[in-house]
Amino acid sequence: MNQFFKSLLCILFILGLQHKIIAQSAYHGGKGSGYNSASTSFQIGTRGNLDSSANTYRLYPSPVPMGQNLWLEFQNNSNSLVTVQMADVLGQVFSVFNTYENKLNINTTSLAQGMYFLRIGINDKFFTAKFLIIGNH
């Protein structure tokens, strides 16, 4: 019985210590402040892709007439696994493609008119392309 109460007291002590120590962490401080900022400069080329991008790509036709397939070509000299995510303007990914080649043919027949994004991952590096689906005239 005594052992039980000793254990109970020990647990209560630990809980009290925990409460005290943890609660203080919100009140600690050091140097500097809670504000910072940093900047960068970049250039967008006439094709709409980043000029300094580590990868260059071709996307055609652009814009894409509704119902036609889209071709995406990119650098993949080492035949690495390439993952391509297709997302809407809200960032919702609705299709994912995998390939070891340097191009991809994408069926767009189910897509409505509007802007879409392709997020292409090669060797842990990512770049993004965008394309526009337009109505048939």
């Binding site: 962490s25 600690h28 401080g29 140097k31 500097g32 940093a38 970049f42 980043l50 300094s52 993004t128």
Partner: peptide
């Protein structure tokens, strides 16, 4: 327990537009 704040923003770069 540790020091607090010292917020830093760094290594900013545009990846792909």
């Amino acid at each position: 327990s540790a020091c607090a704040n010292n917020l830093q923003i760094s290594e900013v770069k545009m990846i792909d537009g």
